[in-house]
Computed example of a mutant assay.
Amino acid sequence: MLVDSHCHLDFPDFDGERPELIARAAQAGVDLMVTICTHIRKFDQVRAIAEEFPQVYCSVGTHPHNAGTERGILAEEIIALAAHPKVVAIGEAGLDYFYDKAPRDAQAEGLRIHIEAARETGLPLVIHSRDADDDMASILREEMGKGAFPALLHCFSSGRELALTGIELGLYVSFSGILTFKRSEDLRDIARELPADRLLVETDAPYLAPQPRRGKRNEPAYTAMTAAVLAETRGVSQEEIARQTTENFFRLFRKVPQSARQPRAAGQ
C-alpha cells in the first residue's frame, strides 16, 4: 500500500476524469491520497471531492502564492473548517521566494496563522518552501519555541540544512517526482541521509510527473514511481518503502482512521 500524501484533485486538469484517476491509482497500489487546498475561499470544492471518494482526504489552507489575496483569514476560521471529518491537515502554507507571487510579509503572516491552526488542532501543517530556506528555518524554530506542532516539508527540493532543521524540530519530509530527475543527485543524497521514520512520498499532481513521465500531467498512480526511486536510493526494497512511508503517514496524519489501511479494489 502507498499513500499520495499531496495532490490537487480539485484542479481543472482532472475535471471529468476523477473516478478513472482514482481507479488507476488503486491499480498502482496507491490506496489513499490527500488532496491539498490552495485557496481557503475555494475549500468547498476540495471538500466535495474528499466527500465523494472514500480513498480521498483533504486539507484546508492558503498556498503562499495566494497569501496576498487571502490575507486576513484568522486561525479560528481555519480551525472551524478543519473540524470536518475528511479534513486531516492544515495548509499548504509557507514561503515561495522563487515566484514571489505574494508579498513576503503576507506569506510569513499566513504561515504563522496556519501554524497556530496546526498547533490548536493537532493536525499536520503541510509546508511549502521554495528558495526560502533561511527564513523558513527561522520561523519554524521561533514558532516551535512557542509550542510544538506537527508538520511536514512537502515536495522537498530545498537544501540539506533545512531538511536537517526540520528533522531536528520533529518534522517529516515528503519527496515528489523531483527525486527521480536525472539532475537531482543532491536531493537523493539528502533522501539517503534522513531517518526512515520521517519519510513520505507524494505527487503534487498535476505537477512534477516523475521519470519517465516528466513533462506530462502527473497523477496519484505515479506515486509508485517516486517510491521506487526512493527505495533504490536508500538501498531497500520497494515493499519496505511502501510499508515505512505508509506507517509514517498514519503516524503524522493521525486523523485518518486506521480502517483506511484496508485496500479497496479499483473502482470502489
Rank of each mutant, 00 (worst) to 15 (best):
R188C: 04
K86P: 11
E17T: 01
R261T: 03
D197A: 09
A28T: 02
V56Q: 02
E202W: 09
A191M: 06
T62L: 08
D100S: 14
T246Y: 04
A102H: 11
T223L: 08
R251A: 15
I79R: 04
V30C: 02
R104T: 10
G267V: 05
G145C: 01
L9Y: 03
Y99P: 02
R71L: 13
T69E: 15
P19R: 10
E70Y: 11
P206T: 00
D96T: 06
P220E: 05
G147S: 10
I73M: 11
E109D: 15
G235D: 03
G122S: 11
K255L: 11
F175W: 04
H65I: 11
A196D: 15
E52K: 10
A137V: 00
R198Y: 04
G235H: 01
H84S: 04
L140N: 01
A151M: 15
I78C: 06
A228W: 00
A163R: 09
Q45Y: 04
T246H: 01
K146M: 07
P64Q: 05
I113N: 02
A221Y: 02
A227W: 03
H154T: 05
P85I: 12
H114S: 11
L32H: 04
G16M: 09
A50C: 07
A118K: 07
H63Y: 13
A102E: 12
I40Q: 07
G29F: 06
N218W: 11
R234S: 10
R213F: 15
E92V: 03
E70I: 09
G145F: 03
E142D: 14
A108M: 15
G166D: 06
Y207W: 14
F175E: 01
S174T: 00
P220G: 05
Q45E: 14
L200T: 08
A209W: 07
Y99H: 15
P12Y: 03
L2D: 02
C58Q: 04
A260N: 04
L123W: 00
H114R: 12
M33H: 00
L140Y: 01
R119I: 13
D135G: 07
D186Y: 07
D31K: 10
L179R: 03
F98W: 14
G166S: 11
P19D: 13
A93Q: 14
L123Y: 00
M33G: 06
E70T: 08
D197C: 09
A224H: 10
I36Q: 04
D31Y: 13
A106F: 14
L187E: 01
E70Q: 10
R254N: 09
E17D: 09
S157A: 15
H84R: 08
